[in-house]
């Protein structure tokens, strides 16, 4: 037998080992039934959102009107980001411990840090490819249904923003999975945190004067209204989410309206029986909202990944 040869060998380069880990992880991800299921559901939802207006219009005998901004304003959405994050990350580390496959993997000449980074890079690749295919599908479908689309050059930018949003959730799920070494706890824990934020954010945003707090938590954050630069009362109806999930959409909006402001409101109850009053809280430049959400996302990603790495590095393999 002659492989690398006997004796004191010089190890393979860092990159060689790293790509081997990435390959290992990629093959796992693309063959995961859960992942394939989510991709199918995502395509089905995109198809539905494209076809539904056509179907509804045809039932009343009208044709669908042109919408040149369909593609740049469409998004996978918070739940989409979370679902993709969940299926990519929930058993990436904990699944190896649960199945016992971690034993042969960690006894190969690859460090735990390299295994961790390889898994992370594979997750990034999978999300990048999936989102690219989904966006291309949306562009083709949007053009067919709604006619020629404007600002398609913004699609890669909004897609990168979406990947950043997704990575906040990936990092969080990885941290829970790495600490618990349980895919179930990672899934339930991640879903619990996601739903808690999803439900509480609009309530806090609408009824409290402390909406600014939401700019520092993962998810949709506070909801503001886009307005032109200037006085607080010059607003549009376009909603802006300040949280980490709004980065993609906000990037596109910022390129189109670099001077825009975002105004935040809360609902005030005047008296029983009367409709609630909209009370303006404060106005911020969109650029500030965007930069802050990117920094918040990067900080969350860094902290969660550091926690995940720390626990993975220290894990004793008892299985």
């Amino acid at each position: 037998m002659t492989a690398a040869g006997k004796g004191d060998r010089t190890g393979p380069s860092w990159m060689t080992r790293f790509w081997a880990v990435v390959r290992y992880e990629l093959l796992w991800n693309i063959r995961k039934k859960k992942f394939l299921g989510v991709v199918v559901v995502a395509f089905a939802l995109v198809t539905l959102s494209l076809a539904l207006p056509v179907i509804l219009s045809s039932t009343i005998g009208e044709s669908v009107g042109a919408n040149p901004d369909y593609v740049v304003t469409s998004s996978i959405g918070s739940f989409g980001f979370f679902l993709f994050a969940l299926v990519t990350a929930m058993n990436s580390i904990s699944g190896e411990f649960e199945s016992g496959t971690i034993v042969p993997l960690l006894t190969k000449p690859v460090s735990r840090t390299m295994v961790f980074l390889g898994k992370l890079f594979a997750a990034f690749t999978i999300i990048l490819v999936t989102y690219t295919v989904l966006f291309v599908y949306t562009v083709i479908g949007g053009t067919v249904v709604y006619g020629a689309q404007n600002n398609l050059h913004l699609v890669p930018l909004t897609m990168l923003g979406s990947i950043l949003s997704t990575f906040v959730w990936i990092a969080m799920v990885l941290a829970v999975a790495s600490i618990s070494k349980s895919s179930l706890i990672a899934a339930i824990g991640g879903l619990g945190i996601f739903l808690a934020l999803l439900i509480s954010a609009p309530i806090v945003s609408a009824f409290s004067s402390q909406a600014w707090v939401l700019t520092y938590v993962p998810g949709n954050g506070a909801s503001g209204t886009l307005g032109a630069a200037g006085p607080i009362n010059v607003t549009t109806t376009q909603s802006v989410a300040t949280g980490t999930d709004g980065i993609g959409a906000n990037l596109g909006t910022f390129v189109l309206h670099p001077e825009a402001n975002v105004t935040f409101y809360r609902l005030g109850i005047i008296a029983p029986g009367l409709p609630p009053e909209t009370i303006a809280l404060y106005t911020e430049p969109l650029s500030l909202v965007l930069v802050r959400s990117i920094i918040v996302a990067l900080v969350y990603i860094a902290v969660f990944l550091l926690v995940a790495w720390f626990f993975f590095k220290r894990a004793q393999v008892l299985e």
Binding site: A3, A4, R9, G11, P12, S13, T16, R17, W19, A20, V21, R23, Y24, L27, W28, R31, K32, S99, G100, T101, V103, P104, T107, K108, P109, V110
Partner: peptide, 24 residues
């Protein structure tokens, strides 16, 4: 390892190929 477990999604030769890459 005792009663080794390998990723079920990989084919026999794929597993050895990937491990071989890790060994350089």
């Amino acid at each position: 390892p005792e009663l080794p477990k390998f990723p079920k999604h990989l084919k026999g030769w794929e597993l050895l190929d990937i491990y071989g890459r890790m060994y350089g």
